[in-house]
């Protein structure tokens, strides 16, 4: 027989419940910030428009990092753009996720031996989902988004927490590659 006695939940439990409710909303309403530097970006228009229509998953493009939940890194990143990517990522409001597109973000892809391009994105910022392929086709992209939703549901999309916890490690990698993350304003100073 179930007890009808009211048992107060501890603070952690209450927080966890709220977090689960929040996760439901967050995974059904992913707003993207597209960092379209590489060729994989071409896969996004069919994903957004009538062919695959990602709006039915509740996803949509957003204009600024403040509003967005998920940062799409579509392809290779040169050192100059990596700085901007880190800056943009740090401006996003938490919880925030990153999806890396194409083999360039995984191991450098066809640019693996270039001096100007980084090879492994998740050394510099925490990536939650990688979509492999060169380029990944649109089904794979959509699949990647669904995977991200599952990860959020299972509380495994914790890249942003990892970035806080291991910030020193990320910062060391960033410094090793870039020298200095925040450069001077080369146009105006």
């Amino acid at each position: 027989m179930l007890s009808t006695k009211f048992s107060p939940m501890s603070k952690e439990e209450v927080d966890r419940k709220w977090w689960e409710i929040g996760d439901f909303f967050r995974r059904n309403s992913l707003w993207m910030l597209m960092y379209c530097t590489g060729c994989c970006a071409i896969e996004l228009p069919p994903a957004m428009t009538s062919a695959y229509d990602m709006e039915r998953l509740g996803m949509g493009p957003m204009a600024t990092p403040r509003q967005a939940d998920v940062l799409l890194v579509t392809g290779y990143l040169s050192l100059k753009t990596l700085r901007r990517l880190i800056y943009t990522y740090e401006q996003m409001s938490e919880p925030k996720y990153i999806v890396g597109f194409g083999s360039c973000t995984i191991n450098g892809g066809i640019y693996h031996d270039s001096h100007a391009v980084i090879n492994q994105l998740n050394k510099y910022v925490p990536v939650d989902v990688f979509v492999a392929g060169c380029m990944p086709n649109t089904e794979a992209v959509m699949n990647g988004f669904v995977d991200l939703m599952d990860l959020i549901k299972n509380k495994k999309a914790n890249g942003w927490k990892d970035y806080h916890e291991r910030y020193d490690w990320y910062l060391a990698n960033q410094k090793a590659a870039l020298g200095e993350v925040r450069v001077h304003d080369e146009f105006h100073e």
Binding site: G22, F25, N28, S29, T49, S50, D53, E55, R56
Partner: peptide
């Protein structure tokens, strides 16, 4: 636009998120 479109309660989801 020949798309399927989001759920009808999508706006609520967005706001609460």
């Amino acid at each position: 636009q020949k798309r399927y479109g989001p759920k009808w309660y999508q706006e609520f989801l967005d706001i609460f998120k």
